[in-house]
Design a protein around this nucleic acid. Structure first.
Length: 231
DNA sequence: GCATTAAATAGAA
DNA sequence: TTCTATTTAATGC
């Protein structure tokens, strides 16, 4: 297999402070893999033997309830580490990771986590602040689920995806990975029918434009108002 | 205000 | 065609 190019990860947050030699060491131990849209990167409950870096594409973190319902916990944008809870001491993955769009990951055996922390400057502090950020988002999300009405939750959800993955297109900002109404329902604790009705209503009001699996937000400020944002 | 059920339409494989 | 995504209406809590 051809060697991975150092430029792949040299600029990414977890590795920013490293020199070329260290980047090389890290890459030489990585296993790259391409994932088709919808394919599973790792599964909830499975032995957590690796952690990953998402190089390209988007990943959906998903839990399945005993009754078979899916809950989407979060989306991960490119450049982030995933499957790292195991590296912090869990024997199994706490959730499944699905490729939301065609994507590319690097994987390392979990025993290297401790080596990375010790050896590579900035890696540990990055990992910690990334976890802190996820906690913050989690707290916001729980509060939102507990207190907001459905329309506000769906508006906040769409905004969150736009903020993390929005790409500018003519007339607005598009969510950069495929999302269905059922997906949004799984993130917001409602039904796809309600999401469909809301998006249709917003489209009539000129706030969004959507085709199948694609959403363009044409009036983000109005979505912010609908979300009942506090900050 | 929102879920559930059901039925129709339309795009993609 | 068959499968999947989406819309829309009707009904009930």
């Amino acid at each position: 297999m051809a060697k991975l190019d150092e430029s792949l990860i040299a600029a990414l947050a977890p590795f920013q402070k490293l020199d070329r030699h260290q980047i090389r060491e890290i890459l030489d131990q990585a296993v790259p893999k391409r994932h088709d849209e919808g394919s599973e990167i790792f599964r909830e409950g499975e032995e957590a033997d690796r952690f990953f870096l998402l190089l390209d594409g988007f990943v959906r973190v998903v839990r399945t309830t005993p009754t078979g319902e899916q809950v989407i916990l979060r989306h991960i944008p490119p450049g982030q580490l995933i499957g790292i809870a195991p590296a912090l001491g869990r024997p199994t993955y706490p959730a499944s990771a699905l490729s939301a769009s065609e994507s590319l990951t690097l994987a390392w055996p979990v025993r290297l986590w401790a080596v990375f922390l010790e050896r590579y400057p900035g890696f540990a502090s990055h990992a910690m602040s990334a976890m802190g950020q996820r906690f913050q988002e989690l707290h916001d999300h729980v509060t939102e689920l507990a207190t907001k009405a459905v329309e506000q939750r769906v508006a906040a959800c769409v905004l969150r995806m736009v903020n993390q993955s929005g790409r500018k297109v003519e007339g607005g900002i598009e969510i950069a990975f495929p999302v269905t109404r059922a997906n949004i329902a799984e993130m917001t604790g409602t039904t796809l029918h309600t999401v469909s009705r809301l998006l249709s209503a917003w489209e009539r009001d000129g706030i969004v434009e959507s085709r199948r699996k694609h959403i363009v937000v044409t009036a983000p400020h109005r979505l912010v108002i609908l979300s009942g944002a506090t900050g």
